[in-house]
């Protein structure tokens, strides 16, 4: 990897400058920082939901017995608690990232920037439609 050489890895020795140290708990002092750390942490729960879904698919492939066994496990109180916490973090993850989309992807239509809320709103629209579709498929079969 190319090294950046122009700024040295040290700064000159200035004994009279005061260099404040960053506390390990810097993220606790301000809600915005805490929100950021929670958003980063939410990725773990997103991964957990993906793993759960994959396990369900595997059980489905292995036959009704294996699926019933996994369903029983998923209904145990401990897994239910984890599922509720995961749901909270996945929703938090989705909302925070949807709201950040317009910042990363400024859209221009005929030379004019599309308003930020509209870019975010289109994400929510797709989310609602997809959720509605899933709900329809699940509820129809019952």
């Amino acid at each position: 990897m190319q090294q950046l050489t122009k700024v040295p890895l040290y700064t000159e020795y200035h004994p009279r400058w005061y260099r404040p140290r960053v506390s390990v708990y810097w993220w606790l002092g301000q809600w915005q920082y805490l929100k950021f750390i929670l958003r980063e942490l939410s990725s773990v729960f997103v991964a957990l939901v993906v793993v759960m879904t994959l396990l369900q698919l595997r059980a489905l492939r292995n036959g009704p017995e294996a699926y019933a066994k996994l369903q029983a496990l998923l209904k145990s109180p401990a897994v239910l608690v984890v599922s509720v916490v995961s749901l909270f973090f996945v929703v938090f993850h989705t909302i925070t990232w949807f709201n950040l989309t317009p910042r990363a992807m400024p859209l221009r239509v005929r030379g004019k920037r599309v308003p930020e809320w509209l870019v975010a709103a289109s994400n929510y629209a797709v989310w609602i439609v997809a959720s509605g579709l899933v709900a329809f498929l699940v509820l129809r079969s019952q």
Partner: peptide, 26 residues
């Protein structure tokens, strides 16, 4: 950059550095 987004919030000139960084990432 981990996209904390605070740079954009505090910018007194509405430069949106967080946006600039994410756009360059893409």
């Amino acid at each position: 950059c981990t996209f904390v987004g605070e740079c954009t919030r505090v910018c007194p000139k509405h430069v949106d550095p967080a946006g600039a960084i994410q756009q360059y990432k893409i």
